[in-house]
Nucleic acid binder design. Sequence first.
DNA 1: AGCAAGTATGAATCGGAGA
DNA 2: GTCTCCGATTCATACTTGC
Lengths: 276, 276
Amino acid sequence: MVLIDRPEAANYSLPEITNRVILGNALEVLKKIPAEAVDTVFLDPPYFLQLPKKELRRWTVNTVVEGVDDDWDKFGSFEEYDEFICRILTEVKRVMKPQATIWVIATYHSIFRIGKIMQDMGYWILNDVIWAKTNPMPNWLGVRFTNATETLIWAVKDRRAKKYTFNKELAREFGIGKVAANIWVLPICNGSERLKDGNGKKLHSTQKPIELLRRIILTSTREGDVVLDPMAGVGTTGYVAQALNRNFIMIEINPKYIEGIMRRFQQPLQLTLPSA
Amino acid sequence: MVLIDRPEAANYSLPEITNRVILGNALEVLKKIPAEAVDTVFLDPPYFLQLPKKELRRWTVNTVVEGVDDDWDKFGSFEEYDEFICRILTEVKRVMKPQATIWVIATYHSIFRIGKIMQDMGYWILNDVIWAKTNPMPNWLGVRFTNATETLIWAVKDRRAKKYTFNKELAREFGIGKVAANIWVLPICNGSERLKDGNGKKLHSTQKPIELLRRIILTSTREGDVVLDPMAGVGTTGYVAQALNRNFIMIEINPKYIEGIMRRFQQPLQLTLPSA
DNA sequence: AGCAAGTATGAATCGGAGA
DNA sequence: GTCTCCGATTCATACTTGC
């Protein structure tokens, strides 16, 4: 894995950034990428959780839930959040090929805002896909339903885009029942897959599971395609793309996460390609 | 079942409309209902792009700009839909008690717009609940995932509302696993439950299943509560509410559907109340 | 070594009363 | 709006410890 750290760069050529991770702010880096360059986008933005200041304590073991308290999830208001989302989606749209598709993931905290903004920008939603978690954290005060799902929006740039990639047979394997249903049941990322920092704590608050990206890439890309992840975190997208013979471009602003990516790629992921 | 058909009415008292269905336009009828009158709302709005234009326009008041047919597929249509949703949610909010909760159901065509509008209006989302259909209509073209879900948004009027009703133990029965998960797996409305017209065709295109309303009412209301459905269709909400010893107020503009409601209530639904 | 018991933790908008 | 204090509250999974 090669890191690109040239903040002074004017523009990037596609070859020089393919299968690379670029250190920098997605909004600025994206502007330097050629138009209509990528086949698929996976976007995992901050969810703007607005967690209460009050700590949530497990009374039986007297420990505190370490919720998402990262600076990258802090916004002053919905308006501020909306503007951020809108700017990212504008830059992303420019670098998408005409037939490219985009995946965006979030929870109820923000997925509705994102979806409406996408529609208003002209993106055409193909599906919502529900990630049903087998092991969510329960709501133990019993004041709400346990939030066991995240929602993915799968869309094209424009209503007129038709010949996008969809591997129906693989989609049938992943969904529930015999139809290619829009529900994926899989566990959250934990155990040895979860990257840790020097103190054994999780390196990233919200690392996405390999299996989730495997399903996204297999259903919506072909071998040799270029997958873009503008907010790569610890790089699950590129890690899985490489294992499935896809190309990738990742952008990440946090050196701590970049370090995790570099460490991860030293042991390439092994995945069997479907015979089809 | 008593029908209220008094378009000339000034204002309604709560007793005179409780356990009744009111014939009329929801936007106008809601204005005649006292403020802070209901405990729970179930809103099943038109699903954008699934109804012909004239069907949607019947709901809108003073918003139709003539001669913009060419723009119907673009932003103009979204705006008109948004305004309709905003108006309904404004009237609904007024008649909700401070601790009342609201359920809104839709598919990806419109749920994102609705959710953002709700947030922008100050509604505070408690959960999204995913209705996973056991018997969805397959997507034969194979160009998308089969749409096997609908999304429900469950919300309170305001972020500060706390003492809303949530029957945790019942929610645990309905969800998947032991946690009260936000996923309900149940079939679409079919068979003898589905109301038919004189020609044996389905009377309503999107009749909601009894079981869906049973779960909504049992998890989020108490006996004696008032449940409001401003766009009642063939009246599943009131039909289930009555069987569970809840009160209801239904509004419906289409006499054909009202007729279905009247017919339905002649054979009251039998449901066992949970012993709790 | 293997099995059992104990411990840790997850994108969480998670309470209420009173000062 | 803040703050403090009181009290009731969780499951699936993976890892660690102990025998």
